Amino acid sequence: MSSNPLSLSIRAAQLKDLAALVELLSDSFYPNVGFMRWFLPLLRVGVYEDLRYRLRSSSASDYVCLVAVILPSTGEATARRDLVGTVEITFRSTSPFQFRSLPYPYVSNLAVYSDVRRRGVAQKLLGACESIALEGGFQDLYLHVLEDNHQARRLYEKAGYRVMQADPFWRGWLFQQPRRLLLHKRLAAPFSQTADAILQ
């Protein structure tokens, strides 16, 4: 597998991307092994409907889904796909019970096909999230990662994220799942790619 960076376009997801996004997210988060394969069709329908609703009803001021697409001039796009990565950024309220609570940018659902990992796709998607946050007047980004997801933790650490908080031990024990870590990054300077260019 090549480790050369890919030539990519990062843009806002569109309704025409739905099928490709469902394929990518299913491949990344729902392994097609064991008993999971029986539930995969149902999970895909749920992912499709959830994404379709968010893309149709959300405004760019509170939700953005980005996609990484291989530029056609590189000749690297396969016959199967050219959309190789995605990430979402939402602007959440610090407290849903406060009338004037401040929003904060939260990154989620970062997914890249395994055969193009370590080629700059995730870094470019994270960089685009930083541009959007900065142009919205924010200087902090947050995300969660599972404690045992060492590959993702290395990626985020390399990108400048640091552990801010961890779920209590009892929660992992009670639900028989790895703990979630809340990561934070303080943004210093804007990236060269502007949010306006990404969201067009």
Rank of each mutant, 00 (worst) to 15 (best):
S2V: 09
S2D: 15
P5V: 09
L8Y: 04
R11Q: 12
A12H: 04
Q14H: 12
L18H: 09
L18V: 05
L21D: 08
E23M: 08
E23S: 12
L25P: 01
P31I: 02
P31D: 03
R37S: 14
W38L: 13
F39S: 10
F39K: 08
L40S: 06
L40P: 02
P41L: 07
L43K: 11
R44Q: 15
G46N: 09
V47F: 06
D50G: 10
D50H: 10
L55C: 07
S57W: 07
S57D: 11
S57Y: 11
S58T: 15
S58W: 09
A60H: 09
Y63M: 02
Y63K: 02
Y63I: 03
C65L: 08
L66Q: 06
P72W: 05
S73D: 11
T74S: 15
T74W: 09
T74L: 14
G75Q: 11
E76W: 02
A79L: 09
A79I: 05
A79W: 07
A79D: 08
D82T: 12
D82Y: 03
L83Q: 13
V84H: 01
T86E: 00
V87G: 03
E88G: 05
I89R: 04
T90E: 10
R92G: 06
T94P: 03
S95M: 10
P96L: 08
F99P: 08
F99G: 10
R100F: 13
P103L: 03
P103G: 07
P103R: 15
P103T: 03
Y104N: 01
P105D: 05
P105K: 07
Y106W: 09
Y106F: 15
S108Q: 08
V112F: 00
D115E: 15
R117L: 09
G120D: 12
V121M: 07
G127L: 04
G127Y: 00
E130V: 02
I132P: 03
A133V: 01
A133L: 02
L134F: 07
D140K: 06
Y142K: 05
Y142N: 02
Y142D: 00
L143W: 02
L146W: 14
E147H: 15
A152V: 10
R153E: 05
R154A: 14
R154D: 12
L155D: 04
E157K: 07
E157M: 03
K158H: 05
G160S: 01
G160C: 02
G160K: 02
Y161H: 01
R162A: 01
M164L: 09
A166H: 11
W170H: 14
G172R: 15
G172L: 14
Q177Y: 04
R180D: 06
L183N: 02
K185S: 00
R186F: 00
L187T: 01
A188H: 00
A188M: 01
A189S: 12
F191W: 00
Q193C: 10
A195S: 13
A197T: 13
I198Q: 03
Q200G: 11
